[in-house]
């Protein structure tokens, strides 16, 4: 048999959660009128419940602001893509092979990069910018989540990263 105290607590809990039937609510009402300690218990649970709701929502939810997945601006996306492109170019640049004679030959400074020309290197880099619109095959998709300026805001950036497999290295041998 269930303990009367436990029965009372269960009834209070059901009422606070809006799960009690009309009959159960009447039963509780009668019990509270009859028994002052039951009434005190109900008041205490009701207060705790109310405050618990406030406490949880205040601690966990982003206050007053709905979370937003912010749409990145076109300029920001273009900047990120350009930065990724430049980073990729830098990353693809081979290591310099040590020269046996000690005299660095400019034309052999790189294993497979074309010999340096007198043209402005920026114009060479600029050619790579054309790749922005080219869909890259053999890529790994990754997502970067950046917290926004306000709580609950996130900027999600999708990155297509080329896999770390360099076919060019094989051609060198």
């Amino acid at each position: 048999m269930t303990d009367p105290r436990e029965q009372l607590e269960r009834l209070i809990s059901r009422c606070l959660d809006g799960e009690a039937s009309a009959e159960e609510r009447r039963d509780l009402q009668r019990a509270l009128r009859r028994n002052p300690s039951a009434d005190a218990l109900f008041e205490e649970y009701a207060a705790l419940d109310r405050e618990a709701g406030h406490a949880i929502r205040a601690a966990v939810a982003a206050p007053g602001i709905g979370p937003v997945l912010r749409r990145p601006s076109i300029w920001r996306e273009a900047g990120l893509a350009l930065a990724a492109c430049v980073a990729m170019l830098v990353w693809l640049q081979p290591l310099e092979r040590p020269s046996a004679g000690g005299a660095a030959d400019a034309s052999r400074a790189s294993w497979f990069a074309p010999p340096p020309t007198t043209t402005d290197s920026w114009t060479d880099d600029a050619r790579s910018v054309e790749r922005l619109g080219v869909p890259m095959a053999d890529t790994d998709r990754e997502w970067i989540v950046v917290p926004g300026e306000r709580p609950g805001e996130y900027l999600v950036i999708e990155v297509n990263r080329t896999r770390t497999r360099l076919l060019q290295l094989r051609r060198d041998f």
Partner: peptide, 12 residues
């Protein structure tokens, strides 16, 4: 506990 309204302070 007495049969009374309950208030809960900030620290609580």
């Amino acid at each position: 506990v007495n049969p009374a309204r309950i208030t809960i302070g900030g620290e609580v």
